[in-house]
Simulated scan of single mutants.
Amino acid sequence: MHRKEKRCLRLGILGCGMICQAAHFEAALKARNVELYAICDVAEDLLDRMAGMYGSRKRYSSYEKMLEDKEIEAVLIGIGDQFHASCAVQALLAGKHVFVEKPMGVTVEECLEMERLVKETGLILQVGFMKRFDEGIQFSRRFIREEIGDVLTMKAWYCDGTSRYTLTDNVQPYIFTSPHSRKPADNPKENRENYYLLGHSSHLFDTVRYLLGDIISIEAKLVQKEEMYSWIILAELAAGTAGMLNLTIAVRRDWYEGFEVFGTRGSVIAKTFNPWLFQSTEAEAYSLERDEYFRPMAADGHFYRRQLEGFADVILKGVCQNGADAADGTAAMRAMKAVYDSVHQDGRKIYLKDVRGGL
């Protein structure tokens, strides 16, 4: 039984597509401090179905009309990547707090504009990097900060597997579609290199930054054979840490994701699961001082619910934000563009501070 607090954040959700059906509608219902107040989509058949299924108080086929609703305190933007920035800007200008799915935008300039608006308005913007709310990853971050000592090297990998869609078809709810849904003018999925970088490497880079701080520079190589893409990325991290990252779509095996971090006083090794299993990362740390291996229970694997609760807590209670803010969204975009630029400039080292444009 999911109990609601007396004061809940009144949330309007934009989009009735896959990510909202599989994650955000249920997360809003289960979140202890969120009310699913309104749902918005231009596809009215899909909108009516979702509003009926999830019991939102209101439904809107116009985003502008939803933003005019004074009862709505925040919006969740769960639509196509190419629409994230413009819809987030509209919401901020309308005085709404914003939760926007990753990536925050598709160009560095879009992201910088959102950063500017957040500072100007004083509103909260959180990016949907839900891995920050994975208890196993949170445990790893605390251990790195408190016990691991100086970090020398880290490896991180994000490899979508060939079995991914078989698994998701089994564990996700049935996804309803509509011929009236709005899509980008072109088909972003046709350019697989760009599509994979935006959709997958954004998670990889944000996890690395969440654990170890800023990425300073990147050198990257892409190997592509048949329909398989694999990036090897050398990353220079804050405090002199060296990172070796791998993004492969799709690795010929089950989902394969995790990281290893080696420090002067310990180490942490972690295995992350397909997110639709709602299973926390299995993380094991070794402390030289304790001379012990240890790991957390990490029983609560509903990252999507946990991130919405964190978003609402920042707005309603002013608690410290654990989620990714606008600056984090920009940093992830810079890292993705740095990989693209390095690959297309024969592996040249690219400094993130110099990156501009989009993929």
Rank of each mutant, 00 (worst) to 15 (best):
D41H: 03
D41P: 10
V42T: 14
E44K: 15
D48G: 11
D48E: 14
R49S: 11
M50E: 15
A51G: 14
A51R: 13
M53A: 13
M53Y: 04
G55H: 15
S56D: 15
R57H: 07
K58A: 13
R59V: 06
E64C: 08
E64H: 08
M66G: 11
L67C: 12
L67M: 15
E68G: 09
E68A: 14
E68Y: 07
D69V: 05
K70N: 09
K70R: 12
E73Y: 03
L76C: 08
G78K: 06
G78F: 07
G78L: 07
I79Q: 07
G80M: 12
G80I: 04
G80S: 13
G80H: 09
Q82T: 10
H84E: 03
H84P: 10
A85S: 15
S86L: 04
S86K: 06
V89P: 04
V89W: 02
Q90C: 04
Q90W: 01
Q90N: 13
A91W: 08
H97E: 01
V98Q: 01
V98I: 08
F99S: 01
F99L: 02
V100D: 04
K102D: 04
P103H: 02
M104Y: 03
G105M: 06
V106N: 11
V106L: 12
T107P: 12
E109T: 07
E109G: 14
C111W: 00
C111K: 01
L112E: 13
E115C: 15
R116C: 12
V118P: 03
V118M: 00
E120A: 13
E120T: 00
E120P: 01
T121W: 09
G122M: 08
L123T: 02
L123A: 07
I124K: 09
L125R: 01
K131S: 08
K131P: 03
R132Q: 11
F133D: 07
D134G: 08
G136R: 02
F139R: 03
F139C: 07
S140P: 02
S140Y: 05
S140N: 05
R141M: 04
R142F: 03
R142P: 01
I144V: 08
I144P: 05
I144K: 10
R145D: 09
E147V: 04
I148P: 02
I148M: 13
I148G: 11
G149Y: 10
D150E: 15
L152W: 09
M154C: 15
W157P: 05
G161I: 00
G161A: 14
T162F: 07
